[in-house]
Each structure stands twice: as C-alpha cells, then as structure tokens.
Design a protein around this nucleic acid. Structure first.
Length: 130
RNA sequence: CCCACAGGCCGUUCUAUCGCUGUUCGCCUUGGGCGAAAAGAGGAAAGUCCGGGCAACAAAGGGCAUCCUGCUUCCUAACGGGAAGGGAUACAGCUUGACUGUAUUACGGAAAGUGCCACAGAGAAUAUACCGCCUUGAUUUAUCAGGGUAAGGGUGAAAACGCGAGGUAAGAGCUCACGGCCUUGUAUGGCAACAUGCAUUGCGGUAAACCCCAGGAGUUGAAAGACCAAAUAAGCCAGCGCUAAGGGCUGCCCGUCCAAGCUGGUGGGUAGGUCGUUUGAGCCGGUGAGCAAUUGCCGGUCUAGAUAAAUGAUAGAAUCCGAUCCGUCGGAACAGAACCCGGCUUACAGGCCUGUAAAUUUU
RNA sequence: AGCCGGGUGGCCGAGAGGCGAGGCGAGGGUCUGCAAAACCUUAAACAAUGGUUCGAAUCCAUUCCCGGCGU
C-alpha cells in the first residue's frame, strides 16, 4: 500500500538523460518538477527521482533530512493522487522532484505543497489526453 | 562546597502506527513473491594533513634530478603520530644555585662553499674614519692637508665577545687574569642526546636562502582490479620474426619492451550484474611486564554494508535548557558510513569522573 | 571516496623577502551653452590565524572559500 520500493525509483542513466533533455517542467514552490511520459505502460506506473541541491544546503545532514521528508510525503500520497489516475488512463511516467527552497521546511509544509504538485501533474496529462 | 587548569568518558531515552536496507528462518516455489525474527551512522563518519594494508602497471633494474623528514632512546605494521629523557627560551618560587616547579619548543650543520643583510649610518663582513682622541706639516692662533686609532658619541634589528689591568703618542685580544659562547682532543657519568673537569683553536646574523650531512620515497588509486551473462568488429594475448623511426600512465640518461606479416587462442562498446566489501594490526573483561607510550597471556564476543546511495516520518510521554500571563509555549550541540585500519587537525549544547593548585566552612 | 590548482581595491590583473604597479569603473575638478572625449586629482585591496625573519602579499603550518579531473 504505502510502499516505496526500488522499482519505483529511477536509476537508469539512460532514462535520466532522456528525462532532463526532453521532459517538460513546472514550478510549485518549493519544488521544481520535470516529467516525461513513457510509451510502454507497465507496473509500477511511475518512477521518481528526488533531489536537493548542494548549492543551497552545504551539509549532507540537511540534504538527507529534506530528501527523507519529501520521500515520506510522496510515499503516503502517491497512491490516491497519482497511481489511481495513471492506471485509469494506462500511462507510465518518469519524473523528478527538486527542492529549490532556501530554508529547511517542516514536514506539514512539504506534504501540503507536494499534494498541490501531484495534482498539477495529473492535470497536465488530463489536458493532453483531451 | 566553590572556582581554574589538565586528562579521560558519555554525548538524549521510551512507546505506538506506517515505511526503507541487507541477513537468517519458514511457506508458495522456474524467476520471484509473502510472512516472521533479530540488526542497522560517529567521536569526530568531516578536512584529506600524514602513515600503512590491499590492488594494478613491460620495467618494482641502475644512476642523476626532484620531493620529504631532521636533538636522543623507546613504542608501533608504519608514520611527519605517541611516550620518556636531554638542550634552549620564558615566567614563578625560595634555601640564590650543577636549585626547584610550570609552560613553550620544525631543536642536525654557519669552523665545506656561495648568496643576502633594504632604509638609516663613517662603516653591514678582505671591516670602516662622520664627530671625537693622538700625531706630523703648513699657514698662523684658528683652520687646512696628511697619517695613526676603534676606547667614547651617533645610526641601526644587528657594529667584530664582556669587563678589569698591563701596554701606548692615542688606542686596540696587542698581552694577561676572570668570565660567556664555541671547535677539537681527552677523562668521568649516562644505552644515547648530553652533562661536568682538564688542555686547546677560534669569536656577526640568516639554512621555514641555495647548499652540506644523515635517513627515506617506483608510480597510480576501489572510478584500483577480478569474474559472469547476452551481444558480435578486427581489438587483445601467446609464439615466430624484424630492427629504422617513433612510442609507452615517471622529469632526464642508461638499460628494457613494443611494429607490419604468419600461426594459434580469446572476445570491444552498450556506465548490466557479481566479487573486491566487511573477521580486522578487531572489540570487551581479567591478569602479568614497563616510569609511560605500549605489550605478553587467558577468557568472552561478532558489532552497518548502501550503490542517483537504506538507517526515516508522524503522534504521545520522560529528561535537560530557555521563556512565562504559572495554563503552558519554544528548543535538543557539532554533524551522516561509501575499500579498511593507525594517527593528526578542525567543529561541538550539555553532563559525568579523576588529578593538581588556590579560597571558604567544619572537625 | 580519491587526486590536483587557485584566493591581491567594485571588476580584470602584475609583483614572488625591503614604498602593492597598470587598466576598466567610482567620486571631485578643468574645458563646454550642456554633454562626450581629453587632461588633472582623490579614495579604495594582499582570504583568516599562528610561526620563521630585524622585516612576510611573498617562506612554512593549520583553517576557510572557489574551481578542476576520470570512457
């Protein structure tokens, strides 16, 4: 249910190159989302990369903390906000979430904003299919 | 009890729900999936400043160059680390000296040679003559010219060892006594650095200037390297063969190896996977050796292993700190393993222990 | 994780033991009816700390910051 396994993470170098060269992006503060649909649909319905820039957070502890909070928020909300929609429309998606804020945000703020970001992601594909 | 310094140790805890990583066990069982169990960041994991292990390179061969280290002995796998000691410097104390204590210390050689020592100053290293002192000559009674001199003045970070006597026209280690540093020889003590005594040559600084002496360093780093699967063009390896140019993951030289061709074998890219990879100079306890660093013996123990990178999130409670309208509210140091060890350095809220010194109180 | 290179006014840049050049820029002035150009002039810097030296931007050590490397 609320799982987040290796298959749901994006590890292939090839796919990452493709994502950042051809993918389209939008900004929902404090996140920058880059996304790209895949031609073949399969299980799991999406693969994700979470990133926090070294420029803004110098210490590895801070970067790890933010990545863990984002991952936790994604794990708890992906099923109802994203997977149900993708399964209905038979889509497979790769996307990345980059944290671009300047200060360490707390969990409630991250969760709220991530929900907004995910719903905006689905809305983008609703328009395209129409 | 309080305060300062030094050394050592710890560096939030518990519960519930939902997850992540590898391991073991069980079930379904081709692959794989599901469930359970126990485990899952540090004293610095950091900086990458040193030293090893480990691995590869045709050369691990020689010489030169280059770089590093630098009081002694010991510890250690090794070190630029540590321990003990010696010297030097600074401060304090008294019994005023071969004294004691504390702190600091990149601390071989300046008597192998070379260089440098700005400005100031007469002169900065073959000494020097501005004032001064002494003297000769000239004119003439105050100057000019020459010579001697390193006591005194002045300059400077530094002025040819200090001080006294002799000596002299005036002076000078020029000579002598005492003393300081220092070279060589020697005696005594010490494993040694070195200390002390005697004799003796000498007397600017600078080697984190070149250099000399002694010792050491082959180069490159786990993105090292080994293997496996699918996949296929002329790569790689071995043998034969040839020596001209050129070349090779080391700056130069010597030496050494390599071409094309033929024969035989193997199989590149695709950042795929597995191993390397966590049992090790390991950790804990006891006991013996040693002033100590450290180490012998005995017993116990297995204690992260990820790979676009797990070790978390939320809620509640405890502990500590701060604020307070006494209801509560806010905060929890520095910081995150990436092949592994030994050091060093830097960051760090708060707490505990031991020792030393001072003050106060009680007996 | 490992291995290299660098840090000089606001910017670019020499200097490598003994006044830190120069250019662009900034401020003021001269010239002009007003500007530009030109000329004169002013201010402003050695990443930090400690050591070696009489004396350090330079030599040495430590720290901080910036940049680079791999088929």
């Amino acid at each position: 249910m609320y799982k987040f396994r290796k298959e749901e993470r994006l590890c292939s170098k090839k796919l990452l190159d493709e994502l950042f060269h051809n993918g389209s992006s939008f900004l929902v503060y404090p996140f920058r989302v880059v996304h790209l649909p895949l031609s073949s649909s399969g299980n799991p319905p999406s693969q994700i990369v979470i990133g926090v820039g070294k420029r803004k957070f110098k210490h590895a502890v801070d970067r790890n903390l933010l990545k863990r909070r984002i991952r936790e928020a994604y794990r708890l909300n992906k099923e109802e906000l994203l997977y149900n929609f993708l399964r209905e429309n038979n889509l497979q998606l790769i996307f990345s979430i980059h944290f671009v804020g300047k200060e360490i945000a707390d969990y409630t703020f991250i969760e709220k904003k991530l929900k907004v970001a995910l719903s905006q992601l689905t809305r983008a594909y609703v328009k395209k299919t129409d």
